[in-house]
Design a protein around this nucleic acid. Sequence first.
DNA 1: GAGGCTAATGTCAGCCGCTGACAATTGACA
DNA 2: TGTCAATTGTCAGCGGCTGACATTAGCCTC
Lengths: 217, 217
Amino acid sequence: MATPTPHTAPAGLRERKKQRTRDALIRAALELFTEQGYETTTIDEIAEAVDVSQRTYFRYFANKEDVAFAVQETVEARFLEALAARPAAEAPLTALRSAVTVAWDDIGDAIESVIPVELYMRSFRMIESTPALIAAHLRRSSEMEEQIARLIARREGLDMDTDPRPRVLVAAFGGVMRVAGQVWGEGQECSVASIRELTKSYLDHIGPAMEDDWRAR
Amino acid sequence: MATPTPHTAPAGLRERKKQRTRDALIRAALELFTEQGYETTTIDEIAEAVDVSQRTYFRYFANKEDVAFAVQETVEARFLEALAARPAAEAPLTALRSAVTVAWDDIGDAIESVIPVELYMRSFRMIESTPALIAAHLRRSSEMEEQIARLIARREGLDMDTDPRPRVLVAAFGGVMRVAGQVWGEGQECSVASIRELTKSYLDHIGPAMEDDWRAR
DNA sequence: GAGGCTAATGTCAGCCGCTGACAATTGACA
DNA sequence: TGTCAATTGTCAGCGGCTGACATTAGCCTC
């Protein structure tokens, strides 16, 4: 049995060329977005920077927003893999926490193969300060949470349609992840290690946050 | 001292006319959106139905999405008022729960003064099945949650920048509210009372959902 | 109640995101 | 090398959205 999902480089010249165009579009778009702003950047500019037609851009990305989340997509895929690999004995929240911790190690390389981490971080900030991208980000996150909740429900042998607990837990988890991302984006330390540690410590607050009387202690 | 916020009818003819145009645009838009779909409806159609120019539409609403959330806006305002009025002695989650319960009673009338509740419900379903509107809905919700978290933090005398608990609790609260809205939209019972009860019972799950071992029941 | 003021509206031109259709180019494979 | 299929470019066009300017219509004063 080989690796669950290879993450390998493609074979043919045609395929490699496509990959290069795609990566170039991502780099150019993020560079332009972070430098002059998302709204003021046009698709024509992105396409021109990579020397392809506007129509070609839309053959790689369905819309203007998508290119901003292309890297995030791989990050999320890695996390889902890591979560699915957690032992069934772990409690739900523990499994989520462990999966995040484990996944971040692989993720760094996956990001760096397309863009420098520093650009990834800048685009993070850009997303959080652009209303249209915030909306897209949240929608993506909620789809992600739906998948995660399904996974958790299956682990625990629960029916998501009648038991709201998977969704509720995952909603809290997702919220914490989002906040962690924001704080990381605003900070100075742009290493992958720093966001991993930030996430871990924030996740430790999920339990205590639900107590009734916060003023006691 | 008068009522905290009047919700009264405006005075001048000019003002009343504006209000009527606005309401007519909302009604026409929701009717068209729910009947033939959001994407396939054009602003020109909405404007024509109310017999105004397309440009006028954009003087009332900043974009195509906004008109779909016009009613929701009043709903949210009522909730915030209700929350601010809760006694300081209540625990955070209790205050949220009580505010929701109290607010729904006023909200029914506020909705009905613009559109029939049945249309409100249909538009709810429409929003949840339209990707672009889901994104907008989530962004609005997250802004709402930010406000709520701020309110909660102030009640408890906490600093939101250092203490993540307000955000985490409100994230869970917001998630549950969203799920309750979805379930209500998909159901048959389109009364305001039904969504109020649904919300109440769902909120009761927030505490238990955070336990470590769900299989211990 | 006539006239001036200002807010609301209509009209027009134009940018940009996005799509379908068709032609031109280029890698793949016999 | 020649055929086939995939990728790309070009073009036309729709719909969301905006600025600019002219027109209309409520408001307020004398």
